[in-house]
Design a protein around this nucleic acid. Sequence first.
DNA 1: GGAAAACGTTAACAAAAGCTAAGGAATTGG
DNA 2: CCAATTCCTTAGCTTTTGTTAACGTTTTCC
Lengths: 197, 197
Amino acid sequence: MHPLRAYIHRFVPLTEAEWAPLAAGITPRTLRRKQNFVTQDQPALELALVVSGACRLLYTRPDGEERTTYFFFENHLMGSYQSCLTGQPSQFSIQALAPTELLTFPYALLRRLFDEFPVYERFGRLLAEYHLLGTDARLAELLLLSPEQRYQALLRSHKTKILERVPQQYVASYLGVTPVSLSRIRARVQAEDEGSR
Amino acid sequence: MHPLRAYIHRFVPLTEAEWAPLAAGITPRTLRRKQNFVTQDQPALELALVVSGACRLLYTRPDGEERTTYFFFENHLMGSYQSCLTGQPSQFSIQALAPTELLTFPYALLRRLFDEFPVYERFGRLLAEYHLLGTDARLAELLLLSPEQRYQALLRSHKTKILERVPQQYVASYLGVTPVSLSRIRARVQAEDEGSR
DNA sequence: GGAAAACGTTAACAAAAGCTAAGGAATTGG
DNA sequence: CCAATTCCTTAGCTTTTGTTAACGTTTTCC
């Protein structure tokens, strides 16, 4: 099955007649390392399914500092929800961490399908709800746990792909600490693990 | 117009025929100060519109410590999305900060309306999307700003209701710091403001 | 293959936050 | 209206994080 159709199928089933118009609007695209799919302060009216590779979502602060807040791997759908919904410039960038293959399509097409096919509207609801649960959990983790506890939670989570495939400085940002601090936390955790062995 | 109908109307218009079945399922309820609408570790299968009063969303940690992560005032819809969607026990409580009037209804009713009326499915999508934008912004703020900057951002935001109506210890939790630390931050910020006057 | 860039660790110091405790002000609720 | 509770601030001390910088390793990509 087409990768995007398979992605949608995890939420709702699509008939051929429902799938065809979306399929017609898809453009494949590749990104080199460090190339942007979304660029901060520019409108980003497309969504993309990652077919292979990896990307990070980052905010560039007024002082030039970058903060990475999210990662996307194979079979993740990504884009600037906020820019697509409001039409305003995106508040963040999405940048390839390695060579990446995408399937892109305009959000406007999806919006048209919301009107035309109830099944897409349902997909849209379930997708937003699914992301909301994830973001809420992330927010709770940031407010409930210390940096060290967040690192340990990541170690024990099902997101270890992040630790394996993402440079540590970006993981630090994702956990809400500086790279230096994460390095210290790791040394501390390792020492604790040695002790309890 | 009925307060709940008015709330929904900000997203989609409802005909009488669409509104009637939801209206039939509404139960008014009042909470005393410190009384729970949702209790952690128990299923919470109802949603509620706050008609008057105020509530906080809080997590109680294994060590007994509480962390407040959200507030609800008049015309806010609240509930445990996660518990409603999955049927699992809620991971947090929702507790009244002051005497509060609610209009409650079962999530199962809304789910039935999703199937029956496309307009409700659209409402569900828009509601989830709206909350997602808010949660994303909150997450970015936590990862991008220092505690002091977060306090200043709150001061300058359109959420000053929080500062006016919520005990400061809960605001501290919401900002991701201890009450003692927020008190120090306030002293610091005030000193800076005096200096620049 | 090799130069350049990116990356992780460590150290030393400064700044900020956490913790505990105590005192006094404000709010609540009968 | 008054007693009990809740709440905010301040202080002293400890722990953690941020910052800057230096060094060695790894990765990237001509």
